[in-house]
Computed example of a mutant assay.
Amino acid sequence: MSEIATHHAISWHRIQAMVLRYWYLLMSSWPRLLELIYWPALQIITWGFLQNYISQNDNFFARAGGTLIGAVILWDILFRGQLGFSISFLEEMWARNLGNLMMSPLKPIEFLISLMIMSLIRLAIGVIPMTLLALFFFDFNFFAIGLPLIAFFCNLIFTSWSIGIFVSGLVLRNGLGAESIVWTLMFGLMPLACVYYPVAVLPDWLQWLAWTLPPTYVFEGMRTLLIDHVFRADLMVWSLGINAVLFVASFAIFLALLRSAKHHGSLLGGGE
């Protein structure tokens, strides 16, 4: 009877061993450690700036019109464009199939183009119902924006691909322990991209950094179009120029990380 009681008793040594396992796993992965600080800081910064913007504009909601709904839809295009790209990549990592692909005649550029196409397919499946809901429930016709919508969409999708290529390279090199970067990096850009408020709300020392991000120009252009009914083509040109630089840089970084993964043998592993 005493042996049975001992068998069913809780062992704090075993609990301690498991806690140590998870502690070492956490401390050995900087993305996991950073994520613990990342989300609380991101929430307070993003909504803090929005609070400042609303408090500085007494008639904010009257002037805002459909800018908040428009910002939500454009943000979803940006986020889901990157997520659709990265999820398709992660599915190869989860299936431990990436090594097979890299040993096949498939070229890296062909692999990336296929991921871009899948991101468009995934994006369409998610965003089209979203725009219809905005129309029926809130009387906001997203497609009434007209031709400027093409400029908004192209710039946002190019940014999402650049970030998708970059984070895929990081996961490729560091393994699935860096998987959280796929979900978190884009949200880190939200406060600086000024999704829900203009760049002028940011402190002066942050504004210059915000203007280095292509989405900032898109969201500023969207607000100008919906509030002042003016299309700022110059903002779209600047966004496209920065996107071109980011796209080339992300592809070069991906190739460098791919070579590093092959050199260090992490291509076939892909574990934690």
Rank of each mutant, 00 (worst) to 15 (best):
A261W: 04
V237Y: 11
I163T: 02
L115N: 15
G48N: 01
L209F: 11
I15N: 11
L83E: 09
T131K: 11
H263E: 07
L258N: 02
R223A: 04
F60M: 04
P198R: 12
V201T: 15
I253G: 03
F158M: 15
I69A: 10
L170G: 11
V245Q: 09
F61R: 11
V182D: 03
T216F: 09
M130P: 13
H7R: 15
G164E: 00
S260H: 14
I145F: 02
S114I: 07
L257S: 06
L206I: 10
T67V: 03
A95H: 01
C194G: 10
L258M: 11
A41F: 12
H263D: 04
T212E: 03
L267W: 04
P214K: 13
L20I: 07
W47R: 10
L267D: 07
W238T: 07
H13G: 01
L135Y: 14
L133F: 15
V248Y: 09
L68V: 08
V127Y: 00
M18W: 14
D234W: 10
Q51W: 11
M190C: 04
L189W: 07
F136T: 07
G84N: 00
L192K: 15
A200Y: 11
P31S: 11
G241A: 08
H13V: 00
E92D: 08
L147E: 04
L240Q: 14
H229R: 13
S11L: 03
L101C: 05
L90Q: 12
G65D: 05
G269T: 10
F231R: 09
A200C: 07
